[in-house]
Design a protein around this nucleic acid. Structure first.
Lengths: 211, 211
DNA sequence: TATATCATGTAATCGGTTACATGATTAA
DNA sequence: TTAATCATGTAACCGATTACATGATATA
């Protein structure tokens, strides 16, 4: 059995290049942290790896933008081969669905924590997820601003379209769907955290007062 | 900087041993797939690795249960050192929170999919998450049945208690909290999928009829 | 007859994280 | 003066996945 030539993270980078136009590794890292935060994370080192991988596959091409007093920007754009790969991926059934949540793990084994420690962790989680919710709401307001008009070089494929004004409505549809999901998820999480905190803090499991 | 001696997955195994009593690697794999499914997954090979790691740390001990015509069961139990480590972990701020969801990634870049392909993937996701919801509801009904009475050998620590009849109420509290979270999450996801499917399928993005 | 369950492990690989490395500009 | 931003990469490590390996019993 052969290993696949690409992984979800690969298509994350490829999709951003298709969707947002020519981008540098640095740009891509920022887009991962904002747009793809609800579904896939990536260190910058990994993004550079994926870019190298995709160049070897001829899914992307690179052009050097020279700059003074800064490292040159290496700007990547998707090729027709890359566009085909992206569409082909869309026809495969989705694989990975996984959650890794150390906070939930600690709640699960909350019987082995002091109530104080558990409550503290829950409250920190609440703050974190409230920030996340806030971010996602900000992002979804910014959606119409994310727009590239430089998508001239590589259009023409049947289903294939970069994000431009002509198809802004259609593209916004997916962006809005994702934003809606992210907000709904955080709301659910936050509501649960609040309930959990209320329960844990009103548990008389030790009666240890502390000024 | 030193690498940590243990990771969330390690505490997942340790917590199950503390909570459910002496268990084999095989038992642990099944408990991961049922109880810990909403927060952390593990292949069986990894569980065996963690057991070896924890034996080296003296967090667990092993006893061989001989069997005829089957491989011997190797049954692990937590030590006092392991109990201390578990409680100490509960006082650390939680680290990992990450979601990896290839379906969401495909929706995000849905502009590069045929509407048929996208709808198919969404419908498959709906089925999957409905099954998940059903499982979690089943599990939470089974909670009072998950009970070990063999936790005699290693009690006595201050906060430390295995899951027995005496503290069933307190332990059930955490189990119920997690079950409640898992159900709420799946409900949110399912509701979103239904909305997304409705939107995608009523999109006239090609008008390609197909009998 | 074939699949599922019980039961434990090793080997190979690689995705993903953390740390290392560099260095100018700009804002607090 | 310190920190953040811009900008790109390499090196080391390891957690996690997939495949390999074995073999009896029970169920469909």
């Amino acid at each position: 059995m052969e290993r696949p030539e690409a992984y979800p993270i690969t298509y994350g980078v490829l999709g951003l290049l298709a969707f947002m136009g020519p981008l540098s590794g640095y740009d891509l890292k920022h887009l991962f942290d904002s747009m793809l935060a609800p579904m896939w994370g990536a260190a910058h080192s990994q993004i550079y790896n994926e870019l190298r991988r995709m160049r070897e596959l001829d899914w992307v091409e690179m052009e050097r933008e020279e700059q003074e007093s800064r490292p040159d920007r290496k700007v990547y754009h998707i090729t027709q081969k890359g566009q085909k790969a992206l569409t082909a991926w869309q026809s495969q059934p989705p694989g990975v669905y996984q959650i890794r949540d150390e906070l939930l793990l600690k709640v699960m084994f909350g019987a082995f924590a002091s109530p104080d420690a558990l409550a503290k962790n829950l409250r920190a989680g609440l703050v974190e997820h409230e920030q996340r919710l806030h971010q996602y709401r900000m992002n979804s307001l910014l959606i119409p601003a994310h727009r590239t008009t430089q998508g001239e070089a590589y259009q023409g494929r049947s289903h294939f379209q970069p994000y431009t004004e002509e198809n802004a409505d259609e593209s916004d549809l997916f962006l809005n769907l994702i934003a809606h999901f992210a907000v709904a998820l955080e709301q659910t999480y936050i509501k649960w955290l609040q309930e959990a905190i209320a329960i844990i803090e009103h548990q008389p499991t030790g009666e240890q007062e502390q000024s």
